[in-house]
């Protein structure tokens, strides 16, 4: 692909996102913020799922852990950058502890363990009222102040989220470009060969899961500050499935898949609002149709189109491309 064109396109997109809030309503800015927050969570899951090939159904649980950690720490007077770091580290460690035994048994078992974990986290958040406020949740979470500027206005906070969004995207890109990340892609394409080349599959997968979980934690921390209220219902299994939907609809394993998937999942109710009570039915139907027509997600469609153009231009040299 043309690297320079890609780079310019990304630069243009960043520039648009940087100036966009000034011309949007408060609601639209809020929606953009939640798009970026869920993109971060989906990016993390994409690392686990798209690159390491493991299904995690606990991304919402990690968001919850991150959100409660950040909220309770900042409300106790601890500076918010520290609270966010604590949330990320905590989720990373829990990811290690949870993933280590689960990945020992391989296959789809990480999915089952994380599913149970998510349901358990919900119960703890709801039942341990002394710590989490129980079913009533935590209200009045402070928005961070940056260099003395308060971000209580939606636009101010937008730039905080935007900053995290950019930095975490860049970090993920760096990870995937590092030797370690390349080993990952080798692993995804051919586990047996990667193993024979001395790649320790289990350790790599575990690390990917833990990093993905830390992304979930940061996303949760931001979500708490965005909504300024958290309760256990925001971190149920349903939300984990929603994040999974984002990754798959966008295209698992594609760098930009989560951004596109999150955009679609968050904006779809907007576009279908005119159908009144039928919008969820239509939404479900669209997802089914999309899965059937393109199981690799939206970016899978783009790939397929590119491939067919290439085939038309140069029908001979493509067996390898198709195999990929």
């Amino acid at each position: 692909m043309n690297a320079r064109a890609n780079f310019l396109a990304i630069l243009a997109a960043v520039a648009v996102l940087a100036v966009l809030p000034s011309s949007l309503s408060t609601y639209s800015v809020y929606v953009l913020c939640s798009w970026m927050v869920f993109s971060i969570a989906a990016m993390g899951l994409n690392l686990t799922l798209g690159f390491a090939g493991q299904v995690s159904l606990a991304q919402a649980a990690f968001m919850g852990i991150g959100a409660y950690t950040t909220a309770l720490m900042t409300m106790a007077g601890i500076p918010w950058p520290l609270a966010m770091i604590a949330a990320a580290v905590e989720c990373f460690l829990i990811g290690l502890v949870l993933g280590y035994p689960a990945l020992r048994v391989q296959h789809h078992f990480l999915a089952f363990v994380t599913l149970a974990f998510n349901a358990l986290v919900f119960l703890v958040l709801r039942n341990e009222e002394w710590l989490t406020g129980g079913t009533y949740g935590v209200v009045g979470i402070p928005r961070p102040s940056v260099l003395g500027f308060s971000t209580n206005q939606q636009t101010g906070f937008y730039y905080v989220v935007f900053g995290f969004f950019l930095v975490l995207s860049a970090v993920l890109y760096g990870i995937l470009r590092s030797p370690w990340g390349r080993a990952f892609q080798a692993l995804r394409e051919n586990p047996i060969r990667a193993n024979s080349l001395g790649v320790d599959i289990r350790r790599m997968t575990l690390l990917a899961f833990a990093i993905g979980s830390a992304y979930g934690g940061i996303a949760g921390g931001l979500l708490g500050q965005l909504v300024q209220f958290i309760d256990p219902n925001s971190f149920t299994l349903t939300i984990s499935l929603k994040v999974l939907l984002m990754v798959i609809v966008g295209g698992a394993g594609y760098f930009f898949g989560p951004y596109l998937g999150a955009l679609l999942v968050i904006l779809m109710p907007e576009f279908l609002r005119f159908t009144e009570g039928y919008y969820l039915m239509l939404y479900a139907l669209l997802v089914i149709v999309l899965m059937i027509s393109c199981p690799k997600g939206l970016l899978g469609i783009v790939d397929r189109i590119k491939l067919s153009i290439k085939l038309r231009q140069n029908p001979s040299a493509t067996a390898w491309e198709q195999g990929k």
Binding site: M281, A284, V287, M291, P295
Partner: peptide, 17 residues
């Protein structure tokens, strides 16, 4: 397995709604 998982989640929503 994954596309099936997503499609059946959506199917569940469709039936419920």
């Amino acid at each position: 397995v994954l596309p099936v998982v997503i499609a059946t989640i959506a199917l569940g929503i469709l039936m419920k709604e």
